[in-house]
Simulated scan of single mutants.
Amino acid sequence: MKINRLEKILDSMRKSNIPQLIISDPASIFYLTGKWIHPGERMLALYISIEGKYKLFINELFPVSEDLGVEKIWFSDTDDCVKILSESISRNKPIGIDKNWPARFLIELMKKDVASSYVNGSFVVDKARMIKDKEEIELMKNASRLNDMAMEKLLDLVVDAHSEKKLGELLLSIYEELGAHGFSFEPIIGYGKNAANPHHSSGDATPKEGDSIILDIGCVKDSYCSDMTRTVFFRSVKEKSKEIYKIVLEANKRAIETVKPGVRFCDIDFAARDFIESKGYGKYFTHRTGHSIGIEVHDFGDVSSINTDIVKPGMIFSIEPGIYLPGDVGVRIEDLVLVTKDGCEVLNKVDKDLKVII
């Protein structure tokens, strides 16, 4: 077990009056143990108690020979795995359940009437994961460095007028050449009117002169994710598109300038959204300003108008305002930021000045 991370979890459990916790999310188990286990439909559970009992319940199909600093409890496909788990739970005490534990396990555990109550314990691990330690920060910086390199290589290929889908395939090859471990999410590559769909799925479209081109890409390196968006224009740019680009870029910069310990996530969202609204495009900024990122490309937490949580050093999240005019043009500019003790560090270095690919 990674002791410093475990201590953060235990401290939060004590403060939240959660004496015991079942962690089922593979990403959170990796966070604590350094081991990825993908159980599919089978049960996987890490049991933690403030009394110092730590047990990993794991199917025999997933051999783990390493010492993970936690007792491993094995079961087979024909065992009653929930019964085996229930025998380790402290009776007549509350228990937290994290993340998306399948109902077939949770309901069976509840039927056994071992805990006094069941509570949503997701926030215990999620909020701990929001604050990156030194090791995680270096891994995130490295993933973003690779993503910057990939974006520069991808921009060089736009001139060849590949289809959206083909450009995505070439991006995967670029990541492999750079030593990344594949996509952190399916890339969003949109030309022209497709760029006006914030979550467009890449298709067979090819770029036409004057099109805006959204390139929203990310890779995984050493189990940590990157994410960045740049928007460029193909062969020429219309005056209206120039205006929109400048507005989005200024919104991106204003939001980044707002990031520092003590501000609220909603204040950062407001910095971007208020500027876009002041220019008359508020209804065309249709999503939140950003999201947290780490082991998963969308970690817990977001930069939205309703999130009043306070920003703290060690947090990493995206700043990605956009304007999308249906059937016409879309612009999004996204960077990842690391919150420092007195501000933030932008992890992406790819130039954001308006670029026309000729």
Rank of each mutant, 00 (worst) to 15 (best):
R42H: 12
L167C: 07
L68H: 10
E296W: 10
C225K: 05
Y54S: 11
I37P: 00
G262K: 01
I22C: 05
E334R: 09
A143C: 11
K166G: 09
V232C: 07
L44F: 05
K352H: 15
R230A: 01
C81H: 10
S226L: 11
A196G: 13
N120T: 10
D67F: 14
N4K: 14
T340D: 11
E209W: 06
R145K: 13
L44I: 13
E186F: 11
A161P: 02
D126Q: 02
I247W: 00
V70M: 03
V64S: 09
S305M: 13
L44R: 05
S122I: 04
F57R: 00
P261H: 08
P326H: 07
V339I: 11
E186A: 07
E164G: 05
P187W: 03
A128G: 09
S65L: 14
T206W: 03
D353G: 08
I37F: 08
M315P: 00
D299V: 15
S184W: 05
I306G: 15
D342V: 11
I84M: 06
V64W: 08
S65M: 14
M140W: 01
K132Q: 09
K99S: 13
K221D: 12
I319K: 03
P261A: 02
G203Y: 03
V339F: 06
H200P: 00
K193M: 10
V259H: 07
L171A: 07
I217W: 01
I306N: 13
N59E: 08
K312M: 15
S76Q: 06
L32V: 10
A180C: 10
S202K: 02
